[in-house]
Design a protein around this nucleic acid. Structure first.
Lengths: 235, 235
DNA sequence: CGGGTTGTTGAACCTTCTCAAGGTTCGTGG
DNA sequence: CCACGAACCTTGAGAAGGTTCAACAACCCG
């Protein structure tokens, strides 16, 4: 199942440009990589599960990850999207020893991971690692806060518009005639992100498509008029 | 405005039993206190404001604090309640240099504070300070997550029930015939905490009072049947 | 005792969900 | 290459849960 060192040897260039490691010397990066396990995940599988013992922490090298929580009644709520280049599963950074949520791959993904016992070492030995990690954390706290405010005060239409805008900002790819979300996303996914139903999302997207704001096929959404969406998102 | 050292000299016992400082020696606590500014705040005033430069970090010695965000349209959303004994305004811990939200006193409160430039020193020099701080952070992240899930999946009645239960857990005081929330709280406050209107909260409380679950006067809420509330909160 | 704040309650309205049914796209195996 | 099942999407009708509007009552403080 778990394949160690898919590549014969991981290349230093994988990490040198990523914030948590950018201040390190080649030699340090080498050590870090030699301790890492690299693995590919298919789309839609769990990297780790809510409540599980936090044995490892991860760096997403390629792909996208959705952080979700599952309610007692089985509904999923997406609380974050994580793009490539960020750490995840950093329970230790917030003094926990189990994962607070489940991480699902939104696309096929490549992930490095290290055993949690190395966390202390990383924080102590590697200049900038702690600082950058806590910045990431701060950013995520900010996002969660924003999400709370949105859920608390905005209508569904505004929330969906905001979610789309955030997605194209984080993971948008410029294409002919607009900006497309860089991974497959269903109406259901969007509804879990905005706390509504897939029906309502479908109706909204249909409406927007008629008005020329977006174009969408199965699992693909392209925003053709971001400005109009911004206007909508303000109410 | 800002009164330095209200007490002639702060006593070590103020901090010795609080988690972030509990592993420290008397001498260290003395140093910490000598660098602190102590101040009393009236009820309903801001300790710091969202977006402001994070000059200082705080320890709430007595009272309760509400962490709120204000939307562009002026609505308030409460994202956390902080009881006495916890740190607040710890922007530095998440790599920020401005406060991400506003802190309002829910009661008259006593607060110690230190200039942010001491943060690094505290983290470096004082055993357990960093660990405990990050635990607090982790706890708050967990609460925010829970709040997101609640907002996303629960009905208003369940959310209000949950909010009440959380309040009596965190800040409840056992009184004759039930548990009372230990600070004045209006229908409006509860509605900001649960993302609804004061009208709906009022109706719910009236209904519950008729059924014998709670008793409430102006700004006071006493839960007389917590178990029934738990049942309600599950749907 | 008067003005401001807080709380209550009814009625109309509206957004969004639920239920239901059918359509489209995709991948797979014959 | 086509048939078939599964996953995904669309749309309508009706119902429900909450909000908004409005008026008034109770309480508190100076």
């Amino acid at each position: 199942m778990l394949q160690k060192k898919v590549l014969p040897r991981l290349d230093e260039s994988l990490l040198t440009h990523l914030p948590p490691f950018s201040r390190l010397e080649r030699r340090q990066i080498r050590t870090i990589l030699d301790q890492a396990t690299s693995r590919r995940y298919d789309q839609g599988v769990a990297i780790f599960d809510e409540g599980a013992q936090a044995d490892r922490f991860y760096m997403l090298l390629d792909g996208y990850v959705r952080v979700v929580r599952i309610t007692p009644t089985g509904e999923q709520v997406t609380s974050l999207h994580i793009p490539a280049g960020q750490l995840l599963g950093i329970a230790k950074a917030i003094g926990r020893d189990s994962y607070p949520a489940t991480a699902l791959t939104a696309t096929e993904s490549i992930v490095l991971s290290w055993p949690t016992r190395l966390w202390e070492t990383f924080v102590r030995e590697y200049d900038g690692f702690a600082t950058e990690t806590y910045k990431t954390l701060g950013h995520r706290v900010g996002e969660m806060n924003t999400r709370i405010v949105e859920l608390a005060t905005q209508q569904v239409e505004q929330r969906v518009a905001n979610a789309l805008l955030r997605l194209i900002n984080q993971t948008g790819r410029k294409v002919e005639g607009g900006i497309e979300i860089d991974f497959p996303i269903t109406r259901q996914d969007l509804s879990e992100l905005t706390a509504t139903t897939l029906h309502t999302v479908s109706r909204l997207l249909s409406g927007w498509e008629k008005r020329g704001l977006v174009e969408s096929k199965r699992k693909r959404i392209k925003v053709t008029n971001p400005h109009a969406l911004v206007v909508l998102s303000q109410g």
